[in-house]
């Protein structure tokens, strides 16, 4: 009798503990969001939201008229991130397919840790690569004066997103039951057809998750783009122009801005927009995943 009661108490204590852990993550998220909102909102005493979101000029320190349009930065962020995904997703899926489907197990044994090491390279080092390697390369190939532009940022972010995309896609592909592949081959499908028509669709949920995580990595990355994209404030018209992303915009100015000014609050408002963007990406991923899983059932 006594023992049961003790077990019950312990049960509920354990349950309470895990419940608290779960709640804590939600609280942290809410806390970040609340702080961000609270610090961002005062910016809109002086700026209208439409001006903030739709104007392209950002010049808070102008002696005549301070301007707070973030559209250039938003577009820059989307360009650099989009470009990175355009490079990283096909390559990542290709490498993942190679690792799970083609590579000899010994090659796989060597390559997988290499991919993981790639993930651990500090962003400063990647940014450095952009300055000394990809920048000059891009300048040479496309005959631009320097290579510090959106294209450079995309390449670097692709490199940084690749390990995530590769390893999660590879897990997803390896988790596809071998029986699917056998069934396909036995029907007279080639290995390529089997990969493209059976294995990739079966692993799609994981591949989408991998892409979204890779995107999350890219969209919020600061140091690399700060170093490699040139940080021009003008509205970008192509990948060979210098751009300033939202993250580098915040990073550059937050150190020097006087506290509690409109400029200061506006930087937090940029952060808020970035937060909402990543949140939207994750929600979208979630919806896609859920739809897909429903279909699978």
């Amino acid at each position: 009798m006594r023992k049961t009661r003790w077990t019950n108490v312990r049960e509920s204590a354990i349950r309470a503990f895990f419940f608290t852990c779960g709640i804590l993550t939600v609280l942290v998220l809410l806390g970040i969001f609340a702080t961000l909102v609270a610090t961002a909102v005062p910016a809109f005493r002086d700026i209208t939201p439409s001006e903030f979101l739709l104007k392209t000029n950002w010049d808070p320190t102008s002696p005549e008229k301070a301007e707070y349009g973030i559209l250039s930065m938003v577009v820059s962020t989307l360009m650099v991130t989009g470009g990175a995904l355009l490079l990283a997703v096909p390559i990542g899926i290709g490498v993942a397919s190679y690792l799970s489907d083609v590579a000899h197990w010994r090659v796989r044994e060597i390559l997988k840790p290499v991919v993981e090491i790639l993930a651990g390279i500090p962003s400063v080092v990647v940014g450095f690569l952009g300055i000394v390697l990809f920048g000059p390369l891009i300048a040479k190939v496309f005959h631009t004066g320097h290579g510090l532009n959106a294209a450079n940022g995309s390449v670097l972010l692709a490199i940084m997103a690749l390990p995530t995309i590769i390893s999660i896609s590879e897990d997803a592909l390896s988790a596809v039951p071998a029986a699917y592949g056998e069934a396909s081959l036995a029907l007279g499908a080639s290995r390529w057809q089997t990969l493209v028509r059976v294995k990739l669709p079966a692993g799609l949920s994981g591949i989408i998750a991998a892409t979204m995580l890779g995107m999350g990595r890219a969209i919020g990355e600061t140091m690399t783009v700060l170093m490699a994209t040139g940080n021009a404030r003008s509205f970008p018209h192509g990948f060979l122009e210098s751009v300033r992303t939202m993250t580098s915009g915040i990073a550059i100015e937050l150190g020097e801005v006087p506290y509690y000014t409109t400029h200061y609050y506006a930087l937090f408002a940029i952060g808020l927009v970035l937060f909402v963007m990543t949140f939207a990406v994750n929600m979208a991923a979630d919806v896609v995943l859920r739809k897909y899983q429903e279909k699978e059932r």
Binding site: P177, A179, E182, A183, A202
Partner: peptide
């Protein structure tokens, strides 16, 4: 070929 365990595609 038909396998031991039914293995339809998803």
């Amino acid at each position: 070929m038909v396998f031991q365990k039914p293995n339809p595609f998803p």
